[in-house]
Each structure stands twice: as structure tokens, then as C-alpha cells.
Amino acid sequence: MSKDRNVKVSIENLSTAFEIMGSHYKAVDDVTFDLYDGEMFAIVGESGCGKSALALSIMGLHDDSVKIEGSINYKEKDLNKMNKEERRKIRGFDFGMIFQEPLTALNPLVRVGEQIKEVLSIHTSLSDSEKNNKVLDLLDEVGIPNKEVVVKKYPHELSGGMRQRIVIAIALACDPDVIIADEPTTALDVTIQAQILKLIDNLRIKQNTSTILITHDLGVVAEVADRVAVMYAGQIVEMGTIDDIFDNPMHPYTISLLRSIPNSDNNNKKLYVIDGIVPSLQNIDRTGCRFSERIKGHDDSIHEENPQLREVEEGHFVRCTCYKEFDIEKSQEV
């Protein structure tokens, strides 16, 4: 599937390090992946795995104290080497972003129509009436009824679902090539979640926008993703098509995660519990397999000394060799 598609963004050896008490710690550690044309690429992981830091790095939204290494190649240019002004012009125009919390993501003092218009003013030379028309078109596109009324509303006057549609309209305003959605439905009710996911997916298909969907929810992944990367402690531990991940998960972490959510298979059974806790940023052991200490019932020889993300099947990548020996039943018994 991936062979006949064009690479839209190619991320190589990307690291994002935060400064804590004078030292830098990598929250994103050597991440490499390609984002294909028009695909829905999900990045899934628990809090603290670095998925949001990765999203902000691609958008260039970290402040200056954050050290970013590696390259983000887009249209034959490395975004990471660009100066601030060049980078700014790409944001909102080529790359749009959808945030988690639609209420706080909007300026409380500005009418929502104006907030959408702001993007058009930055990146286009449209006349005022053209911009107003474009705003109304965008509201149509994100499925907002009574658009003439809604443009004049303030964020607090709209429901959570409507606000998120406004945030999506802002991200879409300049027909970007890439959309990064960071937990776009986490703050919403389930019935709204389904609608918003569908909307993001439909817009992707319609405009052939490559979308990176950041989430902690495997259900959201199962619903819309084409390809999935699973992150743990700053690294991608497994990456493959949606079917690879759900039907043939290989990395112990992916297998464990899938087993720990309540579903129709484990009803009335004990849920699988991953031993230990997610290490905090300063406490990540950066030598060897980062998941090793959370695997029980296996000896350390199953891990690689310097684990690499390898393509084990076509398009299916797994980090470390421990997947070959890992037996979840054995890990649970101990």
C-alpha cells in the first residue's frame, strides 16, 4: 500500500529535549517515519510517551529552550533548518493543527468568525468580503448549521462539539497539506467524538490531506487510522498498517496495551496489567530496551543491547528483538 504513495513529510531521527534543572532530557528520542500523501497516521501512547511533544516539534511550536534535533523534510526542505520567519509562514498554511481542548484553544474575547478569518488574513491576500465568504464556506465544510449566526458568536456561547468544529475550520482554512490533530476528541462526549472523528476523516479524504492523529485511545485508532505508530518512553516501538497493529501486534508493549482495555473478549475476565509505571522524563533508562523492566517472566537476554526499529515484514516495524520471545501469558503469571 505504501509503495505507490508519495511521501509528504519525512521525519528523520527527530529528538526533542526539554530542559529540566539545567539538563536536557529527550521526550522524543530518535523518531523516524514517513507521512504519506492523504493518509491518516495515528500516533498512540500513554501520557508522557512524547506524542504531544512530537506533534509540537513538527509544527514548530516549542519555545526556544527546547532543543530539537534531526530533520523534518517537507517539499525538499528541512523545516528544522529554517529560520523562524520561514517556519511561521508554513504554519497555518501548509500545516494545520487541531488541539485537544476546544474551549481554551480559542481566544475568549474574539468572535469565532474573526478567529477563522485571522488565518486567512495572515496567509492570503483576499479582500475582506472574500475572506468573509471563505469563513462561511469553511463553516459549511465543518458542518455548522446557522453559519451566519455562528460567525458572530463568542467561543463560550457554543457547545464543545461546535467549538471543536471551529478549531478544525481554523486548521483547514488555507487548505493545508498536513493536519496534526492532538487528542482532538478527548475532551468531548462519546456521541460528539464519533461525529468529529468522522468529520476529520471525511475532510482528509476529500482534500487528500495527510493527517497525523495523536491519541491515547486505541478505539479512536481502530476507527479511522490507516497506519499506526505506537510510542513508549519517547520512541516508536512499533509501526505498521492498522491491520498489522490490531491483527498481528508484535512488540510486547503493543500487545500489552491491547490486552489492558476492556472489550468484548475480556469481559468478566481480569484485565491485563502492565507491571510497573511509565518512567518520568528524567528517569527513563536510555540504555537497552526501554520496555524491558516492565516485562515479567522473561530473562534479559531476549533484549537487544542497542534496540533498533526494524522492518520485520513489509511496512511493519518493531523495535528490539524481545518481541520474538515475548509471551504475554508468561508475563502475567509471575
Partner: peptide
């Protein structure tokens, strides 16, 4: 409505779930 909104458990159910919704 609530039941139909539960995110898909497995990608193979997508079509079924969308139809149900």
C-alpha cells in the same frame, strides 16, 4: 445512540459501526 458511538473495537468492524450509526 450511545452504543453506536462507542469507538470501534477493531478496524474490521468499521463499516458495520458506521452503518449502525
Amino acid at each position: 445512540k450511545l452504543l453506536s458511538s462507542i469507538p470501534t473495537e477493531h478496524p474490521r468492524d468499521r463499516e458495520k459501526v458506521f452503518k449502525f450509526r
